[in-house]
Design a protein around this nucleic acid. Sequence first.
DNA 1: TAGTAAACTTACTGAAGAGTAAGATGAGAA
DNA 2: TTCTCATCTTACTCTTCAGTAAGTTTACTA
Lengths: 202, 202
Amino acid sequence: MREQEILDAALQVFSKRGYRAAVVDEIAELAGISKPMVYLYLGSKEGLFIACVRRESARMVAAFREAADAGGAPEGRLWAGLAAFFRHVAEHRDSWVVLHRQAPEQGEAIAHELTAARRSVMAEVTGLISTGIADAGGQVRLGADDADFVAHALVGAADSLTDWMERHPEESPEATTARLMNVMWVGMRNVLAGEIWVPPAD
Amino acid sequence: MREQEILDAALQVFSKRGYRAAVVDEIAELAGISKPMVYLYLGSKEGLFIACVRRESARMVAAFREAADAGGAPEGRLWAGLAAFFRHVAEHRDSWVVLHRQAPEQGEAIAHELTAARRSVMAEVTGLISTGIADAGGQVRLGADDADFVAHALVGAADSLTDWMERHPEESPEATTARLMNVMWVGMRNVLAGEIWVPPAD
DNA sequence: TAGTAAACTTACTGAAGAGTAAGATGAGAA
DNA sequence: TTCTCATCTTACTCTTCAGTAAGTTTACTA
């Protein structure tokens, strides 16, 4: 479909240059059409960007949730979801960059859309963590804040690790996930079991 | 000094709007002068941005290293450095945003400068982790890749956690650091001690 | 083969904004 | 008071680019 082709092109250009520096003519050319077609289908540059964000956000959440749902038990769900998340971020860098590397103030509508998109990704991760913790924690219970904290840490780590992955192409997304789970999940389990780290005295 | 005032203004505007959407007139007005003054002092918009990146990068590394050097033993260094890093990112959000939330392709010189700045921050963290691991790991030794992996994860987590901190103003940067150390450092110690997490079988 | 609607393009308009030329202001010297 | 140097501004130029008006091609119908 024509609209999807335009969004494919837009994704590339927006992720490479950012919203403001992206030029509609370049997007049109990449989609193999002329500029007025872009305006016919998407209305404006802003509309184009927002459509792009919506689609990539939906794709991301879908990939993520689908994998988690196939994961079985809570710990398996967390693993499967996180692995899917990594795979998605690694294989669709453009999506991730468009959603997460835009300057904060490009206008009301855009800011709103980006906030919503980021929140929906974060909500998925938080959900997975929450059930994972409930499963692994035994009698200890962590609050919603803690799940949210870990979700932020994980998502941020995943973002930054895409750079690391670029320099380690031999490492699969699954292997990267396993590395991260080794550190964070083992840490969480032990913290839940009562092994508390305290800052050394000055 | 006049040049520093211009850079202060530029930092605000660049971090709010991104390089491309930032308008030199706005920077000038914020600095209380007119546009030609900006060009007199910094030469061009690109030069202004690069000077801005250089200064913030240097400040960041300085805050970071200074705190670490006052930290004593390796684990204390890691704690002190990381806490300083968090404090800096939380209190100087603008610096962090200018260095880390720019679209990738804004021109050769800018890309080069940003890469260098990011690398120097990452190198500090990696160094701290390496000596921390060597200290805590006993007979087990992790490779340079592993320290780099953990450094990426930590820096990414810190970035993302600045959002979390905004929604939890009651939590100090030190407390946030302690939370993160609880998960990641406890995890690392246990992993180093041989507690390996494996993905559940499908 | 003429008619016509859909899909598309060329070539423009208008605004925004980087960069600058030319001159204004003001402080200090003679 | 008049000269001169440094500091600073007003008022432009010129380019880039979002958005559009007017027309052209294509494909299908009758």
